[in-house]
Design a protein around this nucleic acid. Sequence first.
DNA 1: TCCGAAATATGATATAAATCATATTATGTA
DNA 2: TACATAATATGATTTATATCATATTTCGGA
Lengths: 142, 142
Amino acid sequence: MLSNSSKYALKAVIYLTLHTDDTRKMTVKEISSHIQVPQAYVAKLLQDLSKRDLISSTRGPKGGFYVNETNKSLPISSIVYAVEGRKQFSSCLLGLEDCDEEKPCPVHHRIVSSRSRFLEVLEKTSIAQLAGDLKAKKAFLQ
Amino acid sequence: MLSNSSKYALKAVIYLTLHTDDTRKMTVKEISSHIQVPQAYVAKLLQDLSKRDLISSTRGPKGGFYVNETNKSLPISSIVYAVEGRKQFSSCLLGLEDCDEEKPCPVHHRIVSSRSRFLEVLEKTSIAQLAGDLKAKKAFLQ
DNA sequence: TCCGAAATATGATATAAATCATATTATGTA
DNA sequence: TACATAATATGATTTATATCATATTTCGGA
């Protein structure tokens, strides 16, 4: 459903949302140890997210990654799409080039509703909302 | 959502359902040209499906691949699961090992319904049903 | 019974995703 | 200003997926 990279990125960003802000940053080492994802791997992912302004970072001592208020309010789809693109989420389940409502593949109508519900969740749920569930102990990261 | 292999396999099996039965077989060459998938690739996929008795085949002249009545009534999930396994379809969206109703990850409850609807379609729709839509011109393969 | 047509078995290659490693740059602090 | 700490840039390696190639086995028909 999601690539490993997306999963790792989401876990990292959620973790950052719980534990950082403009005044509290966190190093890759800390993050990776807490979410149990290889350090070099999560570093690459976070660097990319930072370059795209989906999270924030500062270099040097006392530096690290963090999320600001703007970052927190982004939908989880922004992370997923940044990491693995959006194509696979909208393309035909059978891979047909011009499958649509008018000329549907045989599975199209059968899965269109569940798929759009899924995408709606990705696009309408913010990182902050997920973090909120964690804070309220309604959900867990491990 | 689905791997290329699954897409190819489904297309091939659907095509076979439309054009073959115990008395009408079809060679890999014919199949691959009709569904525009590389011949050697679809050959490997079909051989595997045949070994698992999800489709049928006979060797030698006048031989080929085909689907019998039992094959046709299989759910599309059987093809997908044979080709790429079922794990990814049931595992946690964030990849958490022990995410479930009691100890959900922060996305679990938000996607559980759309995901199970999706799986329900895979598991309750037969190949024959898809082929039926094609015959009735309610759907198209290209 | 021999030949050719077909799947089967097996493995090689190519491409993409995942993972690891390191030299470079920026910055706070002594 | 020098040093240590952190991200950044870059690329190498590994693993999985996709793709290609071919020798072997099976079997119908001449």
